[in-house]
C-alpha cells in the first residue's frame, strides 16, 4: 500500500512521535509509543523541516538548495515511507 505524498501535501509528524537523538547509537531517532525509527542525517534533515507549515515541494526546495542537487524524489519517497507507517500524516 502506498500513501500519496503530492508536492502540495503539508506533512506533519504524528502527534505521538518525537524527534530526538540517541546518544548510545549516536544517531537521530524518531520515538513513538512502543517503537522507534533510527534516522540517518538525510532523514533528520527532512523531518526537521516537517513542521505542519511547509509543503513537500517547499521541503524539497529548501534541502535542494542546501545540498545543491534535486532531492524531490528522495524527500517524497522518504515521507511516503513514513506515512505508510503512519508516523507522518
Amino acid at each position: 500500500m502506498t500513501v500519496a505524498m503530492s508536492p502540495d501535501t503539508v506533512p506533519r509528524i504524528w502527534r505521538l512521535a518525537r524527534l530526538d537523538y540517541d546518544p548510545a547509537r549516536q544517531r537521530p531517532v524518531l520515538l513513538y509509543p512502543e517503537g522507534a525509527v533510527l534516522l540517518n542525517d538525510t532523514g533528520q534533515a527532512i523531518l526537521e523541516l516537517v513542521d505542519g507549515q511547509r509543503t513537500v515541494a517547499q521541503i524539497a526546495a529548501e534541502l535542494g538548495a542546501r545540498y545543491q542537487t534535486d532531492v524531490t524524489a528522495d524527500v517524497t519517497d522518504y515521507l511516503s515511507y513514513l506515512a505508510e507507517r503512519e508516523l507522518v500524516q
Binding site: D22, P23, A24, R25, V29, L31, E34, G35, A36
Partner: peptide
C-alpha cells in the same frame, strides 16, 4: 538502561 541504548 539509557546509556546501554534503551529508548522506550
Amino acid at each position: 538502561a539509557r546509556e546501554l541504548g534503551v529508548l522506550q
